[in-house]
Protein backbone atom coordinates (compact mmCIF):
# COMPACT_ATOMS: atom_id res chain seq x y z
CA UNK A 1 0.00 0.00 0.00
CA UNK A 2 1.44 3.34 -0.97
CA UNK A 3 1.53 6.32 1.34
CA UNK A 4 -1.04 8.08 -0.77
CA UNK A 5 -3.51 5.26 -0.33
CA UNK A 6 -2.94 5.36 3.41
CA UNK A 7 -3.93 9.00 3.35
CA UNK A 8 -7.16 8.16 1.68
CA UNK A 9 -8.10 5.70 4.40
CA UNK A 10 -8.09 8.56 6.91
CA UNK A 11 -11.60 9.11 8.20
CA UNK A 12 -12.49 12.32 6.41
CA UNK A 13 -16.07 11.24 6.04
CA UNK A 14 -18.61 14.00 5.72
CA UNK A 15 -21.40 11.77 7.01
CA UNK A 16 -20.23 11.68 10.57
CA UNK A 17 -23.77 12.15 11.81
CA UNK A 18 -24.90 8.93 10.19
CA UNK A 19 -24.43 6.24 12.85
CA UNK A 20 -25.09 3.36 10.48
CA UNK A 21 -22.02 4.23 8.48
CA UNK A 22 -19.05 2.41 9.88
CA UNK A 23 -15.99 4.60 10.15
CA UNK A 24 -12.80 2.84 9.31
CA UNK A 25 -9.89 3.33 11.67
CA UNK A 26 -6.49 4.09 10.20
CA UNK A 27 -4.82 1.73 12.61
CA UNK A 28 -6.82 -1.32 11.70
CA UNK A 29 -6.45 -2.33 8.07
CA UNK A 30 -9.28 -4.20 6.42
CA UNK A 31 -8.93 -7.93 5.97
CA UNK A 32 -8.29 -7.58 2.25
CA UNK A 33 -5.35 -5.29 2.92
CA UNK A 34 -3.87 -7.74 5.41
CA UNK A 35 -3.78 -10.50 2.84
CA UNK A 36 -2.72 -8.19 0.03
CA UNK A 37 0.95 -9.30 -0.04
CA UNK A 38 -0.04 -12.95 -0.17
CA UNK A 39 -2.71 -12.45 -2.84
CA UNK A 40 -0.56 -10.31 -5.12
CA UNK A 41 2.45 -12.59 -4.62
CA UNK A 42 0.49 -15.72 -5.53
CA UNK A 43 -1.12 -14.11 -8.57
CA UNK A 44 2.26 -12.92 -9.77
CA UNK A 45 3.74 -16.41 -9.48
CA UNK A 46 0.79 -17.93 -11.35
CA UNK A 47 1.18 -15.37 -14.07
CA UNK A 48 4.88 -16.16 -14.48
CA UNK A 49 4.23 -19.92 -14.53
CA UNK A 50 1.51 -19.48 -17.15
CA UNK A 51 3.75 -17.43 -19.40
CA UNK A 52 6.51 -19.98 -18.98
CA UNK A 53 4.12 -22.86 -19.79
CA UNK A 54 2.81 -21.07 -22.88
CA UNK A 55 6.28 -20.36 -24.18
CA UNK A 56 7.31 -23.96 -23.51
CA UNK A 57 4.14 -25.24 -25.21
CA UNK A 58 5.07 -23.36 -28.34
CA UNK A 59 7.96 -25.80 -28.48
CA UNK A 60 10.29 -23.47 -30.30
CA UNK A 61 12.94 -25.18 -28.24
CA UNK A 62 12.88 -28.85 -27.29
CA UNK A 63 12.17 -30.09 -23.75
CA UNK A 64 15.90 -30.55 -23.30
CA UNK A 65 16.48 -26.81 -23.65
CA UNK A 66 13.28 -25.41 -22.24
CA UNK A 67 11.04 -27.70 -20.21
CA UNK A 68 7.76 -26.20 -19.05
CA UNK A 69 6.64 -26.02 -15.43
CA UNK A 70 4.42 -29.03 -15.99
CA UNK A 71 7.44 -31.11 -17.11
CA UNK A 72 9.33 -30.01 -14.04
CA UNK A 73 6.41 -30.88 -11.78
CA UNK A 74 6.20 -34.37 -13.29
CA UNK A 75 9.94 -34.83 -12.87
CA UNK A 76 9.55 -33.70 -9.26
CA UNK A 77 6.93 -36.37 -8.58
CA UNK A 78 9.07 -39.00 -10.30
CA UNK A 79 12.03 -37.90 -8.24
CA UNK A 80 10.17 -38.76 -5.09
CA UNK A 81 9.21 -42.17 -6.47
CA UNK A 82 12.83 -43.20 -6.90
CA UNK A 83 14.48 -45.26 -4.18
CA UNK A 84 17.51 -43.05 -3.64
CA UNK A 85 15.78 -39.74 -3.12
CA UNK A 86 15.48 -40.02 0.66
CA UNK A 87 19.12 -41.03 0.95
CA UNK A 88 20.04 -38.03 -1.19
CA UNK A 89 17.95 -35.66 0.90
CA UNK A 90 19.25 -37.13 4.14
CA UNK A 91 22.85 -36.80 2.96
CA UNK A 92 22.44 -33.17 1.86
CA UNK A 93 20.41 -32.42 4.97
CA UNK A 94 23.10 -33.79 7.23
CA UNK A 95 25.83 -31.83 5.45
CA UNK A 96 23.77 -28.68 5.65
CA UNK A 97 22.76 -29.13 9.29
CA UNK A 98 26.31 -29.80 10.48
CA UNK A 99 28.01 -27.16 8.31
CA UNK A 100 25.46 -24.43 8.91
CA UNK A 101 25.08 -25.31 12.59
CA UNK A 102 28.82 -25.04 13.14
CA UNK A 103 28.87 -21.75 11.22
CA UNK A 104 26.18 -20.35 13.52
CA UNK A 105 27.93 -21.40 16.72
CA UNK A 106 31.44 -20.37 15.71
CA UNK A 107 30.41 -17.33 13.63
CA UNK A 108 28.27 -15.93 16.42
CA UNK A 109 31.00 -16.43 18.99
CA UNK A 110 33.74 -14.91 16.84
CA UNK A 111 31.50 -12.06 15.67
CA UNK A 112 30.53 -11.09 19.20
CA UNK A 113 34.14 -11.25 20.39
CA UNK A 114 35.39 -9.25 17.42
CA UNK A 115 32.70 -6.63 17.90
CA UNK A 116 33.23 -6.26 21.62
CA UNK A 117 37.03 -6.51 21.81
CA UNK A 118 38.71 -4.22 19.30
CA UNK A 119 42.06 -5.98 19.62
CA UNK A 120 40.44 -9.30 18.81
CA UNK A 121 39.06 -7.73 15.68
CA UNK A 122 42.45 -6.30 14.69
CA UNK A 123 43.89 -9.78 15.00
CA UNK A 124 41.24 -11.62 12.99
CA UNK A 125 40.30 -8.98 10.43
CA UNK A 126 42.96 -10.02 7.87
CA UNK A 127 41.70 -13.61 7.90
CA UNK A 128 38.05 -12.66 7.71
CA UNK A 129 38.76 -10.32 4.81
CA UNK A 130 40.88 -12.90 3.02
CA UNK A 131 38.33 -15.68 3.24
CA UNK A 132 35.32 -13.51 2.65
CA UNK A 133 36.71 -12.01 -0.55
CA UNK A 134 37.78 -15.43 -1.87
CA UNK A 135 35.09 -17.66 -3.42
CA UNK A 136 35.07 -20.51 -0.94
CA UNK A 137 34.54 -23.10 -3.67
CA UNK A 138 38.16 -22.75 -4.79
CA UNK A 139 39.03 -24.71 -1.66
CA UNK A 140 36.98 -27.72 -2.71
CA UNK A 141 39.85 -29.54 -4.48
CA UNK A 142 41.97 -29.07 -1.38
CA UNK A 143 39.18 -30.31 0.88
CA UNK A 144 38.67 -33.38 -1.32
CA UNK A 145 42.36 -34.04 -1.02
CA UNK A 146 42.21 -33.72 2.72
CA UNK A 147 38.87 -35.33 3.52
CA UNK A 148 38.00 -37.56 0.54
CA UNK A 149 34.58 -37.46 -1.14
CA UNK A 150 32.46 -38.31 1.90
CA UNK A 151 30.52 -35.66 3.82
CA UNK A 152 33.45 -33.75 5.29
CA UNK A 153 34.54 -31.65 2.29
CA UNK A 154 30.93 -30.52 1.73
CA UNK A 155 30.49 -29.68 5.39
CA UNK A 156 33.70 -27.67 5.22
CA UNK A 157 32.53 -25.70 2.18
CA UNK A 158 29.08 -25.06 3.65
CA UNK A 159 30.65 -24.02 6.93
CA UNK A 160 33.09 -21.61 5.28
CA UNK A 161 30.32 -20.21 3.10
CA UNK A 162 27.96 -19.39 5.95
CA UNK A 163 30.62 -18.46 8.51
CA UNK A 164 31.75 -15.10 7.19
CA UNK A 165 28.41 -13.38 6.57
CA UNK A 166 27.49 -14.40 10.12
CA UNK A 167 30.76 -13.10 11.59
CA UNK A 168 30.62 -9.84 9.68
CA UNK A 169 26.99 -9.07 10.46
CA UNK A 170 27.26 -10.01 14.13
CA UNK A 171 30.32 -7.80 14.47
CA UNK A 172 28.50 -4.93 12.77
CA UNK A 173 25.58 -5.40 15.14
CA UNK A 174 27.78 -5.10 18.21
CA UNK A 175 29.64 -2.14 16.71
CA UNK A 176 26.40 -0.37 15.87
CA UNK A 177 25.20 -0.21 19.46
CA UNK A 178 23.95 3.30 20.01
CA UNK A 179 26.56 5.38 21.84
CA UNK A 180 23.79 7.05 23.86
CA UNK A 181 22.70 3.69 25.27
CA UNK A 182 26.25 2.76 26.21
CA UNK A 183 26.60 6.11 27.97
CA UNK A 184 23.42 5.49 29.95
CA UNK A 185 24.71 2.07 31.01
CA UNK A 186 28.06 3.54 32.03
CA UNK A 187 26.42 6.40 33.89
CA UNK A 188 24.45 3.94 36.01
CA UNK A 189 27.63 1.99 36.70
CA UNK A 190 26.67 -1.11 34.71
CA UNK A 191 29.36 -3.79 34.56
CA UNK A 192 30.75 -4.79 31.17
CA UNK A 193 28.96 -8.12 31.40
CA UNK A 194 25.62 -6.47 32.12
CA UNK A 195 26.10 -3.89 29.39
CA UNK A 196 26.85 -6.68 26.96
CA UNK A 197 23.92 -8.87 27.96
CA UNK A 198 21.27 -6.19 28.39
CA UNK A 199 22.25 -3.52 25.88
CA UNK A 200 24.64 -4.77 23.20
CA UNK A 201 23.28 -8.27 22.59
CA UNK A 202 19.56 -7.41 22.28
CA UNK A 203 20.47 -4.49 20.03
CA UNK A 204 22.48 -6.77 17.76
CA UNK A 205 19.73 -9.33 17.19
CA UNK A 206 18.45 -7.88 13.89
CA UNK A 207 22.00 -7.81 12.50
CA UNK A 208 22.74 -11.32 13.72
CA UNK A 209 19.59 -12.72 12.13
CA UNK A 210 20.42 -10.95 8.88
CA UNK A 211 23.78 -12.71 9.01
CA UNK A 212 22.02 -16.03 9.53
CA UNK A 213 19.79 -15.33 6.56
CA UNK A 214 22.67 -14.42 4.25
CA UNK A 215 24.47 -17.48 5.57
CA UNK A 216 21.68 -19.76 4.32
CA UNK A 217 22.19 -18.59 0.75
CA UNK A 218 25.93 -19.12 0.95
CA UNK A 219 25.49 -22.51 2.62
CA UNK A 220 23.15 -23.77 -0.11
CA UNK A 221 25.50 -22.54 -2.83
CA UNK A 222 28.35 -24.36 -1.12
CA UNK A 223 26.26 -27.51 -0.80
CA UNK A 224 25.30 -27.70 -4.48
CA UNK A 225 28.70 -26.78 -5.85
CA UNK A 226 30.55 -29.18 -3.57
CA UNK A 227 28.23 -32.04 -4.46
CA UNK A 228 28.50 -31.10 -8.11
CA UNK A 229 32.21 -31.69 -8.06
CA UNK A 230 32.35 -34.97 -6.19
CA UNK A 231 29.74 -36.86 -4.23
CA UNK A 232 28.07 -40.25 -3.87
CA UNK A 233 24.67 -38.95 -2.83
CA UNK A 234 22.96 -35.65 -2.39
CA UNK A 235 20.53 -33.24 -4.03
CA UNK A 236 23.40 -31.39 -5.69
CA UNK A 237 24.54 -34.69 -7.09
CA UNK A 238 21.04 -35.33 -8.53
CA UNK A 239 21.21 -31.99 -10.32
CA UNK A 240 24.71 -32.71 -11.57
CA UNK A 241 23.91 -36.16 -12.96
CA UNK A 242 20.55 -35.10 -14.40
CA UNK A 243 22.02 -32.18 -16.29
CA UNK A 244 24.98 -34.21 -17.55
CA UNK A 245 22.57 -36.86 -18.88
CA UNK A 246 20.28 -34.27 -20.50
CA UNK A 247 17.38 -34.80 -18.09
CA UNK A 248 16.72 -31.11 -17.82
CA UNK A 249 13.31 -31.39 -16.09
CA UNK A 250 14.85 -33.59 -13.39
CA UNK A 251 17.73 -31.17 -12.92
CA UNK A 252 15.24 -28.34 -12.49
CA UNK A 253 13.24 -30.44 -10.03
CA UNK A 254 16.42 -30.66 -7.96
CA UNK A 255 16.81 -26.91 -8.21
CA UNK A 256 13.23 -26.49 -6.96
CA UNK A 257 14.07 -28.70 -3.99
CA UNK A 258 17.12 -26.60 -3.10
CA UNK A 259 15.31 -23.30 -3.61
CA UNK A 260 12.36 -24.55 -1.54
CA UNK A 261 14.71 -25.40 1.31
CA UNK A 262 16.24 -21.95 1.13
CA UNK A 263 12.84 -20.26 1.14
CA UNK A 264 11.63 -22.37 4.02
CA UNK A 265 14.66 -21.62 6.20
CA UNK A 266 14.51 -17.93 5.33
CA UNK A 267 10.83 -17.81 6.27
CA UNK A 268 11.56 -19.47 9.60
CA UNK A 269 14.26 -16.88 10.32
CA UNK A 270 11.88 -14.10 9.29
CA UNK A 271 9.37 -15.36 11.83
CA UNK A 272 12.02 -15.38 14.55
CA UNK A 273 13.08 -11.90 13.54
CA UNK A 274 9.52 -10.60 13.80
CA UNK A 275 9.19 -12.10 17.25
CA UNK A 276 12.23 -10.14 18.38
CA UNK A 277 10.92 -6.97 16.76
CA UNK A 278 7.53 -6.93 18.42
CA UNK A 279 8.45 -3.63 20.10
CA UNK A 280 8.67 -1.88 16.75
CA UNK A 281 5.46 -0.06 15.92
CA UNK A 282 4.01 -1.61 12.79
CA UNK A 283 3.68 1.03 10.13
CA UNK A 284 3.03 -0.10 6.61
Amino acid sequence: MSIKEADRVLPVTTRESDPTRERRSVLRPSRIRMYEPLVIGTLSVFFALTVWQLVANARVYSVLFLPGPWDVAQAFVQLFQSDDIWLDIATSGEELAIGYGMAIVIGLTLGLLMGWYTRFQFGLDPFVNFFYSTPRIVFIPLFILWFGIELQPKIAVIFLGALFPIIINTMAGVRNTEAALLRVARSFGASDALTFRRVVLPGSVPFILTGFRLGIGHALTGLVVAEYIAAKHGVGQIIAIASQTFQTPKALAGVVLIAGTGMLLTTVLHRIENRFQSWRPQIR
Partner: peptide, 17 residues
Protein backbone atom coordinates in the same frame (compact mmCIF):
# COMPACT_ATOMS: atom_id res chain seq x y z
CA UNK B 1 29.97 7.17 37.92
CA UNK B 2 28.49 6.24 41.26
CA UNK B 3 25.26 5.39 43.00
CA UNK B 4 25.18 8.80 44.65
CA UNK B 5 24.46 10.46 41.29
CA UNK B 6 21.93 9.84 38.55
CA UNK B 7 21.69 11.54 35.21
CA UNK B 8 18.65 12.53 33.20
CA UNK B 9 19.94 12.67 29.65
CA UNK B 10 19.13 15.10 26.88
CA UNK B 11 18.34 12.20 24.55
CA UNK B 12 16.15 9.77 26.49
CA UNK B 13 18.49 6.83 25.82
CA UNK B 14 15.81 4.20 26.36
CA UNK B 15 16.23 0.58 25.33
CA UNK B 16 13.71 0.31 22.48
CA UNK B 17 13.06 -3.39 23.09
Amino acid sequence: PGRDRAMVFQQPGLLPW
